[in-house]
Design a protein around this nucleic acid. Structure first.
Length: 328
DNA sequence: CACATTTGACCGAC
DNA sequence: GTCGGTCAAATGTG
């Protein structure tokens, strides 16, 4: 479902056949979702959202094909104008004065020691929230260390939100495009962001459960600006993290980024238990917006419209999850 | 000087 | 005993 939106991110800067495939799959899933929602009279809002999702995928596909396949567009009747709006490197959109000030501090973050810091910032700086790294650990069976962050407002507001960032060892081997798995824990009580405050309302029930939510971020190496953001739908990962004390990413995942995205886009892949155990955390949803704010090197992922879809869809998810939580 | 990162050590869970 | 998460002193940067 919303997870399918993951594929949207695949249209980032460097379109490839693989990303086209992913988007196509995502679009297919969205179509299924749409069919489901249409059948349910009580879900008019989500129906509209599903339509928007479909439009997004259509545009993404059209854009991909236009660039990549030179007009070899197959099924998508997309309006075709994948109007590639580039997102500005948004600065502190919706931040309060306090957070904006703090954000500027963040920007002058020092590189004490240097190594690895760039990677970490890459994976984490594009956050509405201010995170402070408090640890780094080598994880067994994982080539890359895991970085531990907590909300910078922990001391000030007692904010308990934390997140863990780990580079997947699956994607960087051959693609040189690292995939970062970000697992969120806890709830932002600092509420330094407008959206954060709004989100807290939505995800209230999980506030203190430390129910982790995951997202996968793929960054290109220096050349591309190819980036993608994935929802906490990666079945295995999310489940592992929720049921156990968040294991490291499964080493057996062979295909890296694609493998992580596929479960999201493929229909019928045990979404329900995943969503049940790890609903999209509010802070995760909020994170999606800042994500666009600091895309690499001015490269854009997708337009603001798509981002709005992300946002709205997240709200819709709340409804859907409840329905799915109580299967008929 | 203030603040953030680094990194070894500590602690709890399994 | 091992492993993962956190702490805190040391260190670097603006």
């Amino acid at each position: 479902m919303a997870l399918t939106m993951v594929s949207l991110a695949a249209i980032a800067g460097k379109p490839t056949a693989a990303s086209a495939q992913l988007v196509a799959e995502g679009r297919e899933s969205a179509a299924r979702l749409y069919a489901l929602l249409v059948g349910s009279s009580a879900l008019h809002g989500p129906v509209g959202l599903a339509e928007q999702i479909l439009l997004c995928f259509d545009r993404a596909l059209a854009k991909l094909h236009g660039v990549n396949l030179a007009g070899a567009e197959d099924d998508d009747d997309a309006a075709g104008n994948g109007n590639g709006r580039k997102r500005k490197p948004g600065r502190g959109r919706g931040l309060t004065a306090a957070s904006a000030a703090a954000s500027s501090k963040r920007m002058r973050v020092s590189n004490a020691g240097g190594n690895g810091a760039r990677i970490e910032r890459k994976a984490t700086m594009d956050d509405k929230f201010l995170w402070r790294k408090y640890g780094q650990k080598e994880i067994k069976n994982s080539k890359h260390p895991r970085f531990y962050y907590r909300c910078s407002y922990k001391d000030d507001h007692g904010c308990t939100a934390t997140k863990q960032v780990q580079q997947s060892e699956t994607a960087d081997d051959d693609t040189a495009s690292p995939v970062y798995i970000i697992t969120y824990f806890g709830e932002h009580t600092c509420r330094h962001g407008d959206d954060a405050a709004a989100m807290v309302v939505d995800g209230g029930e999980e506030e203190d459960q430390l129910s982790p939510a995951q997202m996968v971020i793929s960054f290109a190496s220096s050349n591309g600006g190819d980036a993608s953001v994935s929802w906490p739908c990666s079945g295995d990962d999310a489940q592992n993290n929720s049921e156990t004390s968040h294991e490291s990413s499964p080493p057996e995942a062979p295909a890296g980024e694609e493998e992580r995205l596929r479960p999201c886009t493929a229909a019928g892949v045990s979404d329900e238990p995943i969503m049940e155990s790890t609903p999209p955390a509010p802070e995760l949803l909020a994170d999606l917006k800042p994500m666009d704010g600091c895309l690499l090197d001015g490269e854009s992922l997708f337009g603001m419209d798509e981002l709005v879809y992300f946002h709205e869809l997240s709200a819709a998810l709340g409804l859907l999850d409840r329905d799915w939580g109580a299967p008929v």
